[in-house]
Design a protein around this nucleic acid. Structure first.
Lengths: 201, 201
DNA sequence: CGACGGGCATGACATCTGTCATGGGTTTCT
DNA sequence: AGAAACCCATGACAGATGTCATGCCCGTCG
């Protein structure tokens, strides 16, 4: 019996996925979580075999959870499911030790199959996402540039970005300027959108 | 037995929801669709009692589907589930004859309950979304302000907005300034996002 | 009719942003 | 050890942007 931890902020989806997985004889959902932090805390207690984690959650990013999990519970394989599969996330996820990466558009039985695959030590990445990631090419942004651009996505003024990133406004402007150059945009907002479209953030 | 049509572009979610609904004795998922057009076509054939439709789908908007359904199949009650519940959508949905409106964050059994409610002629709108929609109030933007804000969404510089709207840059700035004031934002990008979030554009 | 609100435009001013030069600190690779 | 790349910061300058006052044209409503 494979013991599964399920994390998704959307209660309905989480419940539905749990129902689906429970239909399989060899799978058992032993815990559920609605946030990244909750997922981590729960995992430490129940020590599941496989963690199925949604990419976007209110507090902790799914990738961050995966990273923490693979460090703390090497016996637990992590896989990520997501609605909006952006190439950048896939790369980060693999770097974080994620064993499976699926968009929510896959058919229902694929999920169960992949759970078994990662549990037995294998890996699985959705072919379409993999192709996208490869064609997207390398991310020319430095980590800090990506951070700052991400904060700029919401349209916040530079001072707020600086506060949220704990940087000086001048530094923020430097990073943004550099990022604007690399994206070929004419201002940071356009740059942020372009970077997201290309999966760089 | 209540016969249900389920439409969601995310195969995994659709399957999971189907599994969930099928656990109920008095509910039966008689058809599934992955796009809005498909949902319409299928509904014409199977004539379900209740249609459960995702708001965001590749081709036809969930609201458009609901509108067509309520015109063509008045015997079929439509309800909408959504991940990102924007107040604007709720208003449009109700105008389109939707009987139930739920975010995907609700607990699993609420869904079944609401299916029964709308089937028996009732209505149900998630309280949190309803409150949001009410507090959002009417759209205070003038048509032109809305136009210009929409163009600003992509992060374009003012000169480009002016060209695309066939206005002088100064006029664009006036409209944007006014819109920024009405949204309480600190620049046009934030204003554009805020307006979209509230369903004003 | 006259007041009112919206659409459109211009000009002036203060502030915000983007760009560039510069410099010091750290890590990584050769 | 030295080079290269990244992180962080400051200062200066030009151009973009936000704000405000002002004006004209047009349609609507009382």
């Amino acid at each position: 019996m494979i013991r599964i931890l399920l994390a998704d902020d959307e209660h309905l989806i989480r419940g539905a996925l749990a129902a689906l997985l429970s239909l399989e004889d060899d799978l058992e959902v032993v815990a559920q979580a609605a946030t990244g932090a909750e997922a981590l805390a729960t995992a430490r207690v129940v020590r599941p075999d496989v963690a199925v984690i949604d990419l976007q959650m209110p507090d902790l990013d799914g990738v961050s959870v995966a990273q923490a999990l693979s460090a703390e519970l090497p016996s637990c394989s992590t896989m990520i499911v997501t609605s909006h599969g952006r190439p950048g996330h896939l790369k980060r996820a693999l770097a974080a030790g994620v064993r499976g990466f699926l968009p929510k558009t896959v058919s229902s039985d694929v999920l169960a199959t992949v759970v078994r695959t990662v549990h037995s030590g294998g890996r699985y990445v959705d072919p379409a996402l993999a192709a996208e990631a490869i064609s997207a090419g390398d991310n020319p942004l430095t980590p800090r540039e990506a951070d700052v651009l991400e904060l700029a996505l919401e349209g916040a003024p530079i001072d707020e970005i600086a506060r949220r990133a704990s940087l000086s406004p001048g530094t923020v402007r430097n990073y943004l300027s550099s990022a604007v150059g690399k994206t070929g945009a004419s201002n940071r907002h356009e740059a942020a959108r372009a970077a997201r479209a290309r999966g760089w953030i």
